[in-house]
């Protein structure tokens, strides 16, 4: 029943959105419009690069360890989480630290990426009010710079995997797939949030509550089996982030992939991007009147 409801919602959403896109892109000025957008983006590619660089440079400026923090921080939290929850749930699996670290890393990118995008329009209001810049560059840059820091932080997986006696294997290369899904999802959600935040500032507080809930619903520091087999399994199953994290773990541990998770997360991300792009596109011209 629940699945049916969900599917019908998604179906109707796609129909509505497709109609919208056809209206806004195809009917209006069809090809010219799209070409102008691409041309405009190409002209501003250096700015995108500069904004990404600025995010990375300023994040760790004036700290002694600098970028090393992006490795150290997940490692330290993983140690605490492993000790506390490993003991609490009585996990005997030797790869549990790796399990926790994978979840911790992916979740923290999702969290910092969406929160960064959420605030990006207001944070750059000074620039938006004074010069013309394609506005989607701000959420995009904020997600990209978080993604680059996240990619660097993935290095810490290697020593921990070796510590857990997980030898490097070819399936490690498949992590590209969950990483791709993750950035799609973050971008889609980020675009939606950044648009909403311009009009309703409460979104910042609301979303920090939501991220906390999503964290508990993503099976980051507990084994998911018990919850999956209970009546509340849908909490995990309908959370695309859980599917992405599980896929990532499967790649790291060399387990078979669950294609249902991948398909669901992929579909969810694409829908988020469609919704996000359309509402952002429709509202971007009035941003300036509200910031």
């Amino acid at each position: 029943m629940a699945i049916f409801l969900f599917k019908s919602v998604i179906l109707s959403l796609t129909i509505i959105l497709n109609y919208d896109i056809i209206q806004s892109v195809l009917i209006r000025k069809n090809k010219d419009n799209v070409m102008n957008y691409i041309k405009n983006f190409w002209q501003h590619r250096y700015l995108l690069g500069e904004l990404v660089k600025k995010g990375i440079k300023l994040k760790y400026r004036r700290s002694y360890l600098g970028i090393i923090w992006s490795l150290l921080e997940p490692l330290l939290t993983t140690i605490v989480l492993t000790i506390v929850f490993g003991t609490l749930f009585g996990v005997k699996d030797a790869t549990f630290p790796l399990y926790v670290l994978c979840g911790r890393l992916l979740f923290s990118f999702f969290s910092s990426g969406t929160n960064g995008a959420l605030r990006s329009i207001r944070a750059n209001s000074g620039m938006i009010k004074k010069v013309y810049v394609p506005k989607y560059l701000y959420p995009m840059a904020s997600i990209l710079f978080n993604f680059i820091i996240f990619l660097i932080s993935l290095i810490i997986l290697i020593p921990l995997a070796l510590y857990c006696h997980v030898t490097p294997k070819i399936s490690w290369l498949y992590i590209i797939l969950p990483l791709f899904l993750l950035i799609l999802l973050t971008f889609g959600v980020g675009m939606i949030l950044s648009t909403i935040d311009v009009f309703f500032r409460d979104m910042e507080y609301l979303w920090s509550v939501c991220t906390l809930l999503i964290m508990y619903m993503s099976a980051i520091f507990y084994p998911p089996e018990k919850l999956l087999n209970s009546n509340f399994g849908f909490l995990l199953k309908y959370n695309p982030l859980f599917g992405i994290i599980q896929t990532f773990r499967n790649c790291m541990l060399g387990d078979p992939l669950n294609w249902k998770y991948i398909a669901y997360a992929g579909g969810f991300s694409v829908i988020c991007i469609l919704v996000g792009t359309v509402i952002f596109y429709k509202k971007q011209d009035v941003f300036i009147l509200h910031i």
Partner: peptide, 23 residues
């Protein structure tokens, strides 16, 4: 518009320059 206060003058040349559309 677009200057960052934490950036040095040099870094701001590249930031503001790219805001204005220079490569």
């Amino acid at each position: 518009a677009g200057f960052d206060m934490q950036y040095t003058g040099k870094e701001n040349i590249f930031l503001y320059g790219s805001v204005l559309g220079f490569s």
